[in-house]
Design a protein around this nucleic acid. Sequence first.
DNA 1: GGCTTGACGCTTA
DNA 2: GTAAGCGCCAAGC
Length: 107
Amino acid sequence: MKRERAPNFYRRVYAETKRIPRGKVTTYGTIARVLGSFRASRAVGYALMHTPMDENIPWQRVINARGTISIGGNADRPAVQKRLLVREGVHFDKSGTVDMKKYFWEP
DNA sequence: GGCTTGACGCTTA
DNA sequence: GTAAGCGCCAAGC
């Protein structure tokens, strides 16, 4: 998980994620585009998956293009993520979808 | 060094 | 409007 030789790509993803202001959310594609590869959405997701909690990175503000939270495996993580976003002022739809039109943030 | 998997995105049916 | 397939980058085996 924690690699001393953290790839530059990871650091970029973390940096962009930390740039997200409170009450705003972004998508993997946006992060990938900022990094220089719009189609690297998968790599971005993979990087966030390895997001070290030591850095206190708001990975919860990064969601997919649909505005919904994926993961699926542990239902605890998305639950906490949704809770954090709602606590920050992000409104969630009853289906668990975020209104990207209002909360979508891009650099 | 090559193949497969993975928090996705976009296009086509 | 919903469903399925292809493509991208990066890491793991």
